[in-house]
Design a protein around this nucleic acid. Structure first.
Length: 271
DNA sequence: ACTGGCACCTGGGCGC
DNA sequence: TGCGCCCAGGTGCCAG
C-alpha cells in the first residue's frame, strides 16, 4: 500500500495518539512477517514512553526512550488506531497497546512488512545504508549526477534504488520521470546535469505535492482512523496506458523494467 | 562494483 | 460459480 507520501501521512496521523503515551504491552499474534518479529521486541518496548514518531524512507521510527520501534508496511500494510479491546480481524498481526486505551494495530495481508526494535535505529542494517531523503537537502541534480556517472542502469531503476535515494516507489518514479520529460529506460550515466536537475526537481515536486494535499495516489489507502484517503492526486502517467498524455495528448505507454511496470509518454519523454 | 532477476505472501480482477 | 492465471504500491539477496 504505502509509498513515501502515505508513510509520511501515517506518521503525522499516529503521532498525536502516540506521543507522550506509555506502551503498556505489545501483542504479537503472527510473528511471521517479512522478517520474524523478534521474541524480545515486546519486552523491550513495554513500559517505554513514546517520544516521537518520524519517517525515514518508508520506515516509521517510533522513538520510545532508549529503544525504538521500526516499522515497515511493505506492500499491503496498514496501521490502524483502534480501541485496545477491539477484536482482531484477519491479518491483524501486531498491536502496540498504549496506556491511553488505544492501540496501534498492524494489518498486513501479504506480510511483506516488518517490525524491529533497536536502541540506535539509524544503525539498524535496514536503515544504515539508505541514501539521502528525496525531500532533504542532500538530494539534488548535482547529487544524482555524481552517483550516476558510468552507470548503465536505467534512470527509473536508479530512482528505485534505496541506496541511491531513499523511499521513491514505483508510482512516483514513473510520475517524476514524466514530470522531468525523461524516458524511463534512459541509462542514468548518459543523462547530463540539466536533465538530472529536472529529474531531482520533479521527484521533490511530486512527493511534496502528495504530502501537502494530505492525499494519496492509492485507491485502497485508509488513514489510521480508518477513513478513506482523499485520493486527490491525479496521476499523469502511472496506470494510464492507452489514455492521452495530459501534456501532449499522445497515448501513454507501459513497459516492464525489472519486473515492474513503468508508464511514460512516448512523445514527451526523451531518451 | 553493477546488473538484472528472483523471492517472500495474499487478494483482486479477468477470461474462459 | 469456479478455476487458473496475471497483476499489485517493496526491497533484500543472489548469481553472473
Amino acid at each position: 500500500m504505502p509509498e513515501l507520501p502515505e508513510v509520511e501521512t501515517i506518521a503525522r496521523g499516529v503521532r498525536p495518539a502516540l506521543r507522550g503515551r506509555r506502551i503498556a504491552r505489545v501483542v504479537v499474534r503472527e510473528p511471521r512477517l517479512r522478517w520474524p518479529v523478534a521474541d524480545d521486541l515486546p519486552p523491550r518496548l513495554a513500559g517505554r514512553t513514546v517520544r516521537d514518531v518520524r519517517r525515514r524512507a518508508k520506515y516509521l521510527v517510533i522513538d520510545a526512550g532508549p529503544e525504538s520501534l521500526i516499522a515497515h508496511l511493505g506492500m499491503s500494510g496498514r496501521l490502524l488506531l483502534v480501541e485496545a479491546d477491539a477484536p482482531a480481524a484477519r491479518h491483524d498481526h501486531v498491536d502496540v497497546v498504549l496506556s491511553s486505551g488505544l492501540a496501534v494495530r498492524l494489518r498486513d495481508p501479504r506480510r511483506f512488512g516488518s517490525l524491529h526494535v533497536a536502541a540506535a535505529p539509524g544503525d539498524h542494517p535496514l536503515l544504515a545504508k539508505l541514501g539521502p531523503e528525496p525531500l532533504g537537502d542532500r538530494f539534488d541534480g548535482r547529487y544524482l549526477f555524481s552517483v550516476s556517472r558510468g552507470r548503465t542502469v536505467s534512470i527509473k531503476d536508479l530512482l528505485l534504488n534505496s541506496r541511491i535515494v531513499a523511499g521513491i516507489g514505483n508510482i512516483y518514479a514513473s510520475e517524476a520521470l514524466f514530470g522531468a520529460r525523461v524516458h524511463p529506460r534512459t541509462a542514468a550515466g548518459r543523462l547530463g546535469r540539466v536533465r538530472l536537475e529536472r529529474v531531482a526537481a520533479a521527484v521533490r515536486a511530486v512527493l511534496q505535492r502528495a504530502i501537502d494535499t494530505g492525499g494519496t495516489t492509492l485507491r485502497d489507502y485508509r488513514t489510521p482512523g480508518g477513513d478513506p484517503g482523499l485520493f486527490s492526486i491525479e496521476l499523469a502517467a502511472y496506470g494510464r496506458a492507452g489514455r492521452p498524455c495530459p501534456r501532449c495528448g499522445a497515448a501513454i505507454r507501459a513497459l516492464r523494467q525489472g519486473g515492474r511496470s513503468s508508464f511514460y509518454c512516448p512523445r514527451c519523454q526523451r531518451r
